[in-house]
Design a protein around this nucleic acid. Sequence first.
DNA 1: GGATCTATGACAGTTGGGTGACAAATCCGC
DNA 2: GCGGATTTGTCACCCAACTGTCATAGATCC
Lengths: 229, 229
Amino acid sequence: MTAVLVIEDDDRIRLALLLALQDEGYDAVGAATAEEGLRAQRRDPADYVLVDLMLPGLDGFECIRQLRRDDDVPIVVVSARDDTHDIVAALEAGADDYLVKPVAIKELTARLRALRRRARAVVGGPAVEPVPVLAFGDLEISPDAGEVRRDGRPVAVTRTEFRLLCELAEHAGRVLSRQQLLQRVWGYDIGDERLVDVHVGRLRQKIEPDPATPRHLVTLRGMGYKLQR
Amino acid sequence: MTAVLVIEDDDRIRLALLLALQDEGYDAVGAATAEEGLRAQRRDPADYVLVDLMLPGLDGFECIRQLRRDDDVPIVVVSARDDTHDIVAALEAGADDYLVKPVAIKELTARLRALRRRARAVVGGPAVEPVPVLAFGDLEISPDAGEVRRDGRPVAVTRTEFRLLCELAEHAGRVLSRQQLLQRVWGYDIGDERLVDVHVGRLRQKIEPDPATPRHLVTLRGMGYKLQR
DNA sequence: GGATCTATGACAGTTGGGTGACAAATCCGC
DNA sequence: GCGGATTTGTCACCCAACTGTCATAGATCC
């Protein structure tokens, strides 16, 4: 059965969603806080996660980022706030869809089905499907395969380096500030920005032909880092 | 460049969408009917398709089904109708997302990016998100990339110069007083206005073919500076 | 021609980023 | 569990690049 995790602090709404989803044939479980939800998803991963934005403690955005960090589960935001800023921020954080309360259960399930078509394409599909690769000149990154190659030869990078690289690759050509990187790779709200420098330095040692004069992973003084061709 | 096909019969809306998407760095093309859109997509497949539901002749639902029949392109419905029935029907027909007019362009592009994360896995999909560029003749400024180009060649500018340039570019064609620039670039309420001169001068050295007779970054004596084509 | 506004070169103080060293934390084979 | 290897985060130092100030020269207006 398809399992859905509903992270929502309002008991009435959570219950209503759970019942409606169960009516539609889903195996729905609830969590009242982000922390609880994250724990539940780690323990027993659902096929979809519904998350509210305004949660006590860890808020929805942070919750999304943390979910996304170690899971590719489709995430749908269900929020009372109908504000472009929130929508963009939630999607940037890693959400797949954003619905404004009150939601029609039929629409919700239709959107879940639409998401499944895409999500399933990743895991299922033909066995010999070409692994998606982001290429930057002589540099190749396969986020799904967890692999980095230079000139076709595999390069051993650590997990943190890999996440950092993926984050930069995902936004190739754009500057990402140290803050943004800390936020997206480490999930820190605040923290020592120099940490990013160190990992960028280490990454350069591995992926740049000449680490002293980076060609791909470049510094924009005062702004941040970016990955380019 | 990432291509978007916009299928929408209302000329005004189609044009507005095309312009907004082009501003965001997409290669956007339009079609006024479903038939025209289908033909365009077969001839020269875009990376995303935006489609209206109420189209003359073949309607949006049918259009989606036909697109879906021979293409896995992400499809986003942009419709004036905010009705659960329509939403469910469109998603069932094969659409990936559904937005209600009027759409915020920032939300639209955020949703396209979110879709890309999912779609990428299928066929390699669109590579990386395009980076918006402001163009002034031979001068290109890309706020997101933190990059300035002249005649296509990158120009190294410092952070302050870059901010100054972006501020001027954002209000292209309009005079900005030294006060305004100080306020917006430096955040000073008061301060030495000469400071602006110095940075304008440095910027000219870098972006003007002949810094002594500026063509883009011009002085309006007694008023301030402006950036023009 | 004088007053006012702008351009620019020089300079010193400051900032920002690269890097190596090191200790804590984590992983891994046994 | 245990011990070594690897990874991770913190720190401090150094250098290069950047910034703001000032003085002077040049341009423009009336």
